[in-house]
Design a protein around this nucleic acid. Sequence first.
DNA 1: TAGCTTTCCGAAAGCGCTTTCGGTTTTGGA
DNA 2: TCCAAAACCGAAAGCGCTTTCGGAAAGCTA
Lengths: 355, 355
Amino acid sequence: MSERMSLKQLANHLGLAEGTVSRALNGYPDISLRTRERVQNAAREFGYKANPLARRLATGVAEAVAYLMPHSQSAMSEPFVSQLLSGLGDSLSERGWDLLVAQSVAAEDEPEMLSRLISSGRVSGVVLSRPMKKDARIEVLRRAKFPFIVHGRSNDCADYAWYDVDSRAAFVKAVDHLVAMGHSRIAFIGSPTYFSFAQERLDGYRDAVQSNGLSFDQELVQITELSDDGGERAAGDLLDSADPPTAFVCVTDTQAIGALAAIRSRGMVPGQHVSVIGYDGLRLGRHTNPPLTTLAQPQSHSGRQLGDMLLAIIDGGDPKEFQELRSAELLRRKSDGPVWTANSDTMFMQREETT
Amino acid sequence: MSERMSLKQLANHLGLAEGTVSRALNGYPDISLRTRERVQNAAREFGYKANPLARRLATGVAEAVAYLMPHSQSAMSEPFVSQLLSGLGDSLSERGWDLLVAQSVAAEDEPEMLSRLISSGRVSGVVLSRPMKKDARIEVLRRAKFPFIVHGRSNDCADYAWYDVDSRAAFVKAVDHLVAMGHSRIAFIGSPTYFSFAQERLDGYRDAVQSNGLSFDQELVQITELSDDGGERAAGDLLDSADPPTAFVCVTDTQAIGALAAIRSRGMVPGQHVSVIGYDGLRLGRHTNPPLTTLAQPQSHSGRQLGDMLLAIIDGGDPKEFQELRSAELLRRKSDGPVWTANSDTMFMQREETT
DNA sequence: TAGCTTTCCGAAAGCGCTTTCGGTTTTGGA
DNA sequence: TCCAAAACCGAAAGCGCTTTCGGAAAGCTA
């Protein structure tokens, strides 16, 4: 509502043409140092800033990037969104670009929404989270040759930019760890494998199980919804089965927390009678009962990374050159331990939290 | 990148003037039904959509709203942000408006950033979270007579729109509840009271303490940072004092979770030896040790509410008429109980979670 | 000092829409 | 049949900027 000075007014005030003032401000070389400084001073004095809408229309550059909100199944909020947005914002604000968040009502019309978004000219690039193995959104972007970057990877990720954590390797790490502690019946609690990350983690689990000489038992794989309730249900079913597992690896901390509840509600102690390892490294895992052992993602501001990479691509960089794979670390808290045996109580020892 | 049809092309194709086509599409009454339909059909056929940037420039309506990301002290992500954005997005997308998130590097230059934002013309309204008692951002908006709505309330909240939960009343409820269970030394763990919500809750605490005939003891009030660590430290100090409290009310669940840790680490059982009540109703509170009793905010999509109200104000509604106060409910889980006495073990009884 | 570059700036044409204004056709009433 | 009022539509002027183009002024060489 506060009135701003227009380019025209500034130009009149200086006795120059609008175009001249514009060029002076935008660093064109055909403006003498003298007038350039004169213009810049006046602009500063009056607090002149070019109207972004007008500039965007004239230049054809949207100066904005969209983040596609993942459709959270279950009403649970996605804890990472806020951090990611913050990092993205940091990156974009250095250029004075806008960050806008987009979402569609239903997941299935996301591609449609996306193609409208990119053809509307409102944004110069897009950030995607949590891709599926075969992701229609990525197809849309790819076909339109529109700049984008993915937080995660789909199956065919060779030709676009992404930032991901090697959760497959992480799950190998987790299973190896459990095997080393004597476990041989290790269950996997996951989410539908059209999510790329769920497949990755399942693959890691399977590989590690087999490379440790155990047989991959389909019975030990439970696919469920991505929530604490889902985890609790899945773990409960497994525990109640004829030949229950002695350890769980879960695709997210949220599910793992549910698994802890299932174990406790059956009168057992997680970390002692049954081990649980989650994935994400959520801070709240420090406060569960018992504190949750987890595969912790690098805490770094992935949003910042994604933003910087996307901008580089918008500037003409080759997407293929912006692919970054980080790795997760096993963060041992208290929900894992050696396999339980009759005389385990004497073997069970307290541990401090380690990295 | 996909090429769109321009108004000009569409007009040429139809043999009409650009202005006519524009008016036909925008429902002006001076277009005959016949040509209006002809135009609409053609538009549909070619998938014509007006370029938003051009429309915004021409009409002077930004068709966008900004959400100001709260500066999270401590690296903890704000769990509510994602939900709130989602609700806001729902509301805005019905009009085809954009939602953009803005943030400043440091909290202190938020007002400056805000005034640049609103004078830039990029947005038609602003949503603010977590106001301070005296909030410079609100001042800026108010002075500029710019449409905005606050998620929470500052001290002088009579003349603007807000959506808030009556956390003061909630804290009265919590203290009354504890007193009814025999507690008389009830501590308050809070965050700096320049945050409006922190002050509200402290006020509720103080009122309830006094109305229950207890004396308000400054020693029992601990102000600390808004994190689990902060809560743990504060609770620890209190517990280690000469005359420790038998119950805690905490300004957020996050802090309350820290308090639980402090209690456990001193060999006591939260909910039995010492009671803890948090605020927020975070779902993860179901999984702490023990499950956290808390003051639960109405789960409804506050983002949706905020969005709808802000739009109404942008449409010319009187901000004063958009003030909504919801109330929080005591959600009893397991971290509260009767005051502990030597023979309490016999009195202590199991409870199921209730609303 | 003529002639050729450079340097520097003004003018004007967009960018893709909206909206006012005025003029031409139709229509309706007498 | 004539005239005023509707009903319709075209033309044009923006919105506030950018960017190309061309020409005047200034600088340089010979």
